[in-house]
Design a binder for these strands. Structure first.
Lengths: 145, 145
DNA sequence: GAAAAAGTATGATAATTATCATATTTCGGA
DNA sequence: TCCGAAATATGATAATTATCATACTTTTTC
């Protein structure tokens, strides 16, 4: 479903969301220890996310990665977009370029309902909402169902 | 979602379903031409499917691949199972080994509803049903929705 | 019963993805 | 103002996946 890179990125951002803000930053090293993601690989992913303003970073001593309020407002989908690009999730399940509702591939109708729900969820739920859900662990429903 | 190999396998089996039976077989070469799947790669996939009795084959002149009635009764899921194994589709979206309803990963509740629907569909719809649906192109609904 | 047409088996190459390593830049504090 | 701690940039290696090639076996047909 997601690439390894996206899985790592999602995991890392979720941790950042629940444990950092402008005043409490996290170094790659600590995030790596905590999440079991290889340090150098994680660093690369965080750099990409930072470059695209999905997460924030400050260099130097006392520096590290963290999420601003703005970062938190971004949809979860944005993380995947930056790391994997849009094609992987959006494209036809059989990899056909010209598959759509009018000209569906054999599996289109079979797979699309689930896919649509998933995409809708990823695009509409913000990082903040996801993290909040985790902290409260309250009842929770998928938008669109 | 699916691996390239699974996509190819699905495409190929769908074609076999709509165009072959015990009396009308298809050679790898022709399937390859028709589906635009590299011949040698397709051959390897069909061999795997054949070895696991998902599709049928006869050697020699006038031979080729085809689907029996038994083959057609198999769930679509079986194709993916043979090619990709079960782990890829069933495992946690973040790749955690011990993720489940009691001990869910951060994305579990977010992704699981769509995933459950998809898996349910793949496991309950037979190859025959999928092919029949294509031929008739009639209204169609996903079981479980 | 030999020849050719098919699948079968096995392994080699290429491309992509995951992982690691190293040098560079920036910033805070002594 | 200079040292060290952090992110940043870039590129090298390893592992996996996709693709290709070749030799072997089976079976039909003449």
């Amino acid at each position: 479903m997601f690439s390894n890179s996206s899985k790592y990125a999602l995991t890392a951002v979720i941790h950042l969301a629940s444990q950092t803000d402008e005043a409490h930053k996290k170094m790659v090293k600590d995030l790596s220890l905590y999440t079991d993601i290889p340090k150098a690989y994680l660093a690369k992913l965080l750099q990409q996310l930072s470059k695209h303003q999905v997460i924030s970073a400050t260099k130097g001593p006392k520096g590290g990665y963290y999420l601003t309020e703005e970062n938190r407002k971004l949809p979860v989908y944005r993380i995947i977009e930056v790391i994997d690009g849009t094609h992987r999730l959006e494209s036809c399940v059989l990899g056909l370029e010209d598959c759509n509702a009018e000209n569906p591939c054999p599996l289109h109708d079979l797979v699309n309902p689930s896919k649509a729900i998933l995409l809708n969820t990823l695009k509409h739920m913000s990082i903040e909402e996801l993290a909040g859900k985790l902290n409260k662990n309250d009842g929770f429903s998928i938008p669109g169902t």
